[in-house]
C-alpha cells in the first residue's frame, strides 16, 4: 500500500510538473473536438489494437491532454475491413478517428470484398514500430537463427514454426528467409498469441516470430530464448541479440506499424490538431513508460510522412505477399 501511495505522489508531481512547463494554449487555434471522440479499432475487446487504442486514451487522459470520456469502439470483423467501412461512413465527422496496423494494408491488398482501402483515409500519425524477434524454447540447442535454418536444411519440412494467419508478418518473414537460404520448414497457423506460446513451451512447435513484449516474461523465467532480432539494427532492450542480417541472412525487413488515421478527406486544420496532440503525447512521461514497458520503438511521423510511408509499405507487402503465395487482389 505504501509503495502505491508513493507512486501516486510521484505520478501526481510529474503531472503537475509537465503541466507547469508546457503552455496550455498550444492547441488553442484551429480545430478542437467539441465532444468526446470515438477511437475505432479492428480488434475485439482485449486484442492488440484494442489495447493500443485504450492505452492511447488512458495516456492522453492521464497527461490531461484531453478531457475524460473518450470511447474505444471495436469494429472487429474482417481483419480491419469492418473498421475501414465504419470509418469511411464517418466522412466529415470530426469526432471519429481510428488506430491502424499493417493488417489494414494487408486486408486492403488481399480481401476483394473490402470496398475501402487504406488509401481512402486521411493519414494522421504513425506512433510506434513493433519489432519482431525469433523465439525458441529455452532448452532448445539452437544458439541463433542460423543454427535453426541449418537444421531445417538437414531435415526439410520437419521443423515447425507457429504463428498467425498466412498473411501475417510471421509467415512473410518465413517465406523471405526460406527463399534466401533454401531451407524449408512447416508453418502452423494458431489463432491466439497465448496458444502460440503454449505450443512453443509444450515443445509441439519449434520457433515463433514474436513481438518482444509477448515473450519477455518467459525470457526472464528462462522458458524461452530470443535467438535473433528481425530488425535493421539491434534492439535497445536486447543489446545482446544479434540481428538477422548480422547472422548472414539477408532479407528485407518488414515492420509492424501502429498509428492513427481519420475519415476520408479530413480538412487540414483537423489533421493539424491530431498531429499536434499526438506529438505532444510522445513527449510525455506516460508515453516513455509505455514504450519501454511494451518494448516498442517510438516512431512518430506526421500526416504527410505517414502517407508516403504507407505507400512504400503497401508496395513492399504486395510483393512479399505474392511471393508467399497469397492472392493479391489490388
Amino acid at each position: 500500500m505504501k509503495t502505491t501511495r508513493a507512486f501516486i505522489v510521484i505520478a501526481a508531481t510529474m503531472v503537475v510538473a509537465t503541466l507547469a512547463v508546457t503552455p496550455v494554449n498550444v492547441l488553442g487555434q484551429g480545430f478542437k473536438p467539441t465532444r468526446a471522440v470515438d477511437v475505432v479499432n479492428h480488434s475485439r475487446a482485449g486484442g492488440g489494437s484494442d489495447l493500443f487504442a485504450r492505452a492511447l486514451v488512458q495516456m492522453l487522459e492521464q497527461e490531461k491532454l484531453i478531457p475524460p470520456g473518450w470511447q474505444v469502439l471495436n469494429k472487429a470483423a474482417g481483419a480491419g475491413a469492418q473498421a475501414m467501412a465504419y470509418l469511411a461512413e464517418k466522412k466529415g465527422d470530426p469526432h471519429t478517428i481510428s488506430v491502424f496496423t499493417n493488417t489494414w494494408v494487408v486486408t486492403s491488398l488481399t480481401v476483394k470484398e473490402t470496398t475501402y482501402t487504406i488509401d481512402d483515409f486521411t493519414p494522421l500519425v504513425r506512433m510506434i514500430l513493433e519489432p519482431t524477434v525469433a523465439v525458441i524454447k529455452g532448452d532448445s540447442l539452437y544458439k541463433n537463427l542460423k543454427d535453426f535454418v541449418e537444421d531445417a536444411k538437414k531435415k526439410p519440412g520437419q521443423l515447425i514454426q507457429v504463428g498467425g494467419t498466412v498473411s501475417s508478418v510471421d509467415n512473410l518473414f518465413r517465406n523471405l528467409i526460406q527463399k534466401t537460404t533454401g531451407a524449408k520448414w512447416q508453418y502452423v497457423d494458431v489463432r491466439s498469441g497465448g496458444e502460440r506460446i503454449a505450443n512453443l513451451l509444450g515443445g509441439h512447435m519449434h520457433i515463433y516470430f514474436a513481438q518482444p513484449a509477448e515473450v519477455s516474461e518467459h525470457v526472464r523465467a528462462g522458458n524461452v530464448k530470443i535467438i535473433a532480432a528481425l530488425t535493421e539494427s539491434r534492439l535497445e532492450g536486447l543489446p545482446n541479440v544479434s540481428t538477422i542480417k548480422e547472422q548472414g541472412i539477408d532479407v528485407p525487413i518488414i515492420t509492424q506499424v501502429r498509428g492513427a488515421v481519420g475519415p476520408p478527406a479530413m480538412p487540414k486544420d483537423r489533421v493539424q490538431y491530431w498531429e499536434g496532440l499526438f506529438l505532444r503525447l510522445t513527449k510525455t512521461a506516460s508515453w516513455k513508460k509505455y514504450v519501454k514497458e511494451n518494448e516498442v520503438e517510438s516512431a512518430y511521423l506526421n500526416s504527410e510522412q505517414l502517407g508516403a510511408s504507407l505507400k512504400e509499405l503497401s508496395n513492399q507487402l504486395r510483393e512479399t505477399l505474392k511471393e508467399a503465395g497469397v492472392k493479391v487482389v489490388r
Binding site: 470483423a77 474482417g78 469492418q82 467501412a85 480481401v111 470484398e113 473490402t114 470496398t115 498466412v166 497469397v326
Partner: peptide, 13 residues
C-alpha cells in the same frame, strides 16, 4: 486466407 460462404458480406469474414 480464402473466404468461405460469406455471401459477399464483409461482416461474415
Amino acid at each position: 486466407a480464402e473466404p468461405r460462404f460469406i455471401f459477399g458480406r464483409l461482416e461474415l469474414l
